[in-house]
């Protein structure tokens, strides 16, 4: 599903975010991407959805050659992905329902389909009661769930989440992670960046640890303990 081969990312100033990364993530896997701040987690995810373009190496995501993919075809890649950014990017002037529906609206989905799909997603992330609240009336965890619901609107095959539990207390974090696991069980491949050791240690999934832009460890399900 995701395959990186000898991938490096060097920024214009010369700072190296990732160097010689090679790894494969299979369909249906749930992977935690961990590492200290600045280790390259966000950069790793951004390479996968072509927000950043790798300096070297090849990247394959959902059957697409990300590096060779011409710029105008980037939307094709994005349509296969669900992206939850580090800050939940919600539109302040739209309520929960409208924020989720937005992803369908801009794809030209018919009104009937928008309505039924948005309601299904509200159910999934358990935000029915908050459907008509605006982002500034939602808690951090609720905002994250809106963002997750929106990312799922167009049935992605891969879900990329950048620190979705970033500013949440442990209980809420577990809620979010449970939600992601539920989505994963339905068949979606999930990659989640985090530095929350309590979650990683408790949920027993595959863990890729980055350090200084390199893969420091890659542990299969259950064997990883993050200190």
């Amino acid at each position: 599903m995701i395959k990186l081969d000898n991938v490096s990312l060097v920024f214009q100033g010369g700072s190296v975010a990732l160097s010689n990364i090679s790894t494969t993530i299979n369909e249906g896997e749930f992977v935690y991407l961990v590492g200290h701040s600045g280790s390259g987690k966000s950069s790793f995810l951004k390479l996968l959805y072509k927000e950043y373009i790798s300096t070297k190496g090849s990247i394959e995501v959902a059957g697409l050659d990300v590096v060779q993919l011409p710029r105008w075809k980037t939307p094709l890649l994005r349509r296969k992905l669900g992206i939850v950014t580090q800050e939940p990017q919600l539109l302040e002037k739209r309520n929960t329902y409208e924020n989720i529906a937005f992803a369908l609206e801009v794809m030209g989905t018919s009104n009937d389909e928008i309505e039924s799909k948005t309601n299904t997603l509200l159910d999934l992330v358990e935000l029915n009661e908050n459907a008509f609240k605006y982002p500034d009336q939602l808690s951090g965890g609720e905002q994250t769930r809106v963002s997750i619901a929106r990312s799922l609107a167009n049935n992605p095959v891969v879900l990329l989440c950048d620190e979705p539990t970033g500013n949440l207390d442990p209980e809420l974090s577990i809620q979010i992670v449970s939600l992601l696991e539920k989505i994963n069980r339905a068949g979606t491949t999930v990659v989640m960046a985090t530095h929350d050791s309590s979650i990683v240690n408790r949920r027993k999934k595959r863990v890729i640890e980055l350090a200084n832009g390199k893969i420091a460890r890659d542990e299969s399900e259950g064997s990883y303990i993050l200190r």
Partner: peptide, 16 residues
Amino acid sequence: KKEIKIMRLVGASSTY
């Protein structure tokens, strides 16, 4: 700006 950013993120075409 933000709206356009989100549109990009969910894969709306640039023509659109």
